[in-house]
Amino acid sequence: MSIAPPAPVHGATPVTRRALAPDLARGLMLLLIALAHAHMYLSGHEAGFRGYALDGTALDRLVAGAQILLVDGRALPMFAALFGYGLVQLADRQLATGRSWPQVRAVLRRRSLWLLAFGFCHALLLFFGDILGAYGLVGLVLVGFVRREDRAVLRAAAVTSVLHVVVLVGFGLLTVSAPKGDTPAAMADPVEAIVMRLIGWSAMTPTYFAAGVVPAFLFGIWAARRRVLEDPLPNRDLLSRVALFGTGLAVAGAVPLALIDTRIWAPSDAVSVSAYALHSVTGIAGGLAYAAVIGLLAGRGRNGSPGPLVRALAACGQWSLTCYLLQSVIFVAVFAPYAGGLGTRVGDAAASGVAVVTWLATVALAALSASGGRRGPAEAALRRLTYGRS
């Protein structure tokens, strides 16, 4: 089992006592999330498997190809691994106070249930591609793996990876056979957009998103027991191997789909669907690799205090729930036809530019607001709902 940290606390860890690497990973991960989501608010073009316009400019195709190689399907498993990692940390803190496992399990389930509720509201009001609901659902159903033996955790990760491929093939077949149309984010009628967002979220959360979350979530539990991000120096060899092989596997697995979605290669539907499945399943390795890279970087800087840039990124990670939701607020305000309306007038490259600016704004907001241990509004709400007033 994992090693409980010293000086146990009953509620959430005070911001000033949080480990650097997980928060730094979450802060950087939000850039990948923004890049992966922004183009999904665009409309008026036939899109490929990952939602990029097939008739974009040369710059649009270049940006789409780079993001398919390095971003899409990599941020989701990275966040999932950090979610599993965080559940183990939370359980350790609760167990260190003398609470029984049934009591701790109730806390974890209550937190996951509220996270599922946050995801529902996010989909209702802002974005059909919400991922909070999938994390909440997985936390509710698989919380018992926090206490299972390593062998059971790794076996479940392997089995669910195979299941993930099956789900991907099914969604890939739907993509090539379904009529092309605008996403809910691009609908001009806000009421119709709400209905379509909820339909999409209800269908994709327990299938597509959950299937993609579970393997990395379980690997995150396994890693948290070894404190690989809190103590990166003793785990340097493991982190280095994961970073090297995971990145290579993820990039190699993404090449076929990048060629297809940028119209450099036009194979049969069967080959295209296979490339789509390969891209997504190798993204699990990519997400774990990115977390490992950040752990290595954090380990190198442990001898001195973090610089202002690292502190700002870590603050964004501490406010990750708030910053994630703020991204959707900004994207709706900028892109939605019933708001800014930019989604019908720009391409993928411009959308990615908006994503970078949005992420930088949230980093600045978190860095300015998190001083003195102040939590983000969404984090404070989730904490209050999970622990009550105590």
Rank of each mutant, 00 (worst) to 15 (best):
A156W: 04
A156D: 03
R151Q: 09
A158V: 12
A158F: 07
A157P: 01
V153M: 07
R155S: 13
V159P: 09
A157H: 06
V138I: 13
G144V: 12
L168C: 12
V143K: 07
G129N: 03
F128I: 07
R147D: 11
A156H: 02
R151N: 06
G139E: 00
L132Q: 09
G136Y: 06
R151D: 11
D130A: 02
A134V: 00
L168F: 10
L154V: 11
R147C: 13
T160L: 10
T160A: 06
V167K: 01
G133F: 06
V153I: 15
F145M: 15
L137G: 08
V141Y: 04
D150F: 02
F128A: 15
V159C: 12
R151W: 10
V146D: 00
V167N: 03
V153Y: 12
R148N: 11
L140E: 08
V141M: 05
L168W: 02
L140I: 15
V153P: 00
R147G: 07
L142I: 14
A152L: 10
R148S: 13
V141P: 04
V162R: 03
Y135P: 13
L132K: 09
V146G: 00
V162L: 05
F128E: 15
Y135N: 10
V159A: 15
V166G: 00
L140S: 14
D130G: 08
A157T: 06
T160W: 05
G133S: 07
A152P: 03
V146A: 02
L132T: 09
L154R: 13
L154Q: 08
L142F: 11
V143T: 13
F127P: 00
Y135M: 14
F127C: 05
L154M: 12
L142Q: 02
V138F: 09
R151I: 04
V143I: 10
V141F: 02
L163R: 05
V167L: 09
G129Q: 04
D130N: 10
A152M: 12
I131Y: 07
V166A: 08
V138M: 08
L154H: 08
E149W: 10
F145T: 14
Y135H: 15
H164W: 12
G129E: 03
L168E: 12
G139W: 04
L137Y: 06
L140M: 15
T160I: 05
L132W: 15
R147P: 05
G144T: 07
H164I: 06
V165K: 03
L163F: 07
G144A: 14
G129I: 00
V167F: 07
A158H: 03
G136V: 01
V162T: 08
V167T: 04
L140Q: 11
V143C: 12
V153H: 03
V138Q: 10
V153R: 09
L132F: 15
G144I: 04
V143R: 04
V143F: 09
R151H: 14
A134R: 12
L168T: 05
R155N: 04
Y135G: 10
V165R: 02
A156F: 04
H164E: 06
A158K: 14
V141K: 06
